[in-house]
C-alpha cells in the first residue's frame, strides 16, 4: 500500500481564469522511498508539497495517507494527521527562537502526548544525539550555525516518528558540505522505512534520491536527464 498518494491533484488560485499552481497530478509514494521533486522555479514544486503535507487543500483531487482519503477531514483532523504522520523541513529552519534546540524538538512530542515526561525528553535527546547535536542541545537557534539549525529542524520533523517526511528545499540555505550531510541523513531516514519527499534545485543532490519527479508549469513532466539516456 502506498504511504502517500496524490490522486488528480489540482490547485487553482483566484476566480475564473486564475493561476494554476498544480494541475492534475497523480503520484504514488511507498514507504522507504526517497523522492526528489525537481523543476524550474515557479513550476509548482512547493505548491505540490504543501498539498501532500495537508497544509493546503486542493481545488480538485485527493491526498491519501495510509490509503485513507483526506478530502473531507476537518481542519482539526488534518492537524492531528500532520502531528502524528507527517514531518516537515523547510528551507528556513523555522525553529521557535525563544526555545532551545531540545525544547523545539520536544514540543511536538508533548503535543502528541504519546510519550510523556521523561520518556518524551529521552526521545528528544536521542534524536538530537543522533543528529550530532548532543553538545548544542540547550542552545537557542540564534546561537547555532545554519547547518546545526537545519539538523534541529530535521530532528523536530522526526520527533513523533512519522512515516512521511516532507522537505521544501531543505538545503537551499546551506553550503555544499552541509547540504550533502542533510541528504545523507534523508537517505538514512528513508532506509529506516520512511517515505522522504524533498524538493530541490540541486541536480547533483537529486541524483542521490531513489526516484525523481519533475514538474513543469504545475504538471508532471519527464525527468530531463533520464529522458536523454
Amino acid at each position: 500500500m502506498a504511504a502517500l498518494q496524490a490522486v488528480g491533484l489540482t490547485r487553482l488560485i483566484g476566480e475564473g481564469d486564475g493561476v494554476t499552481l498544480v494541475r492534475d497530478i497523480s503520484l504514488n509514494f511507498t514507504a522507504g522511498e526517497f523522492v526528489c521533486i525537481t523543476g524550474p522555479s515557479g513550476s509548482g514544486k512547493s505548491s505540490l508539497l504543501y498539498l501532500l503535507g495537508l497544509l493546503d487543500q486542493p481545488t480538485a483531487g485527493d491526498v491519501l495517507v495510509d490509503g485513507r482519503s483526506t478530502q473531507r477531514l476537518s481542519r482539526d483532523a488534518l492537524a492531528d494527521l500532520r502531528l502524528a504522520k507527517l514531518g516537515f523541513v523547510f528551507q528556513f529552519h523555522f525553529l521557535l527562537p525563544e526555545f532551545s534546540a531540545f525544547d523545539n524538538v520536544v514540543l511536538p512530542i508533548r503535543r502528541l502526548g504519546r510519550l510523556r515526561g521523561r520518556a518524551a525528553d529521552r526521545r528528544a535527546e536521542a534524536l538530537l544525539d543522533r543528529l550530532g547535536l548532543a553538545a548544542s542541545m540547550h542552545k537557542r537557534p540564534g546561537q547555532m550555525s545554519g547547518g546545526q539549525r537545519q539538523r534541529v529542524a530535521i530532528a523536530r520533523a522526526l520527533a513523533n516518528d512519522p512515516p512521511v517526511v516532507l522537505a521544501d528545499e531543505p538545503t537551499g540555505n546551506l553550503d555544499t558540505h552541509n547540504a550533502t550531510e542533510v541528504f545523507r541523513l534523508f537517505q538514512e531516514i528513508a532506509a529506516e522505512g520512511r517515505l522522504v519527499v524533498a524538493v530541490t534545485h540541486d541536480l547533483d543532490l537529486a541524483r542521490e534520491a531513489s526516484r525523481r519527479v519533475h514538474l513543469v508549469d504545475g504538471a508532471l513532466a519527464p525527468v530531463p536527464g533520464v529522458a536523454l539516456d
Binding site: G53, D76, A79, F94, P108
Partner: peptide
C-alpha cells in the same frame, strides 16, 4: 506569525 505557521504545520490545532 512565522512561529504560528510553524506550530500549525507541525500539527497544532487552531484551538491550541
Amino acid at each position: 506569525a512565522r512561529d504560528i505557521a510553524i506550530l500549525k504545520s507541525m500539527g497544532f490545532r487552531e484551538s491550541d
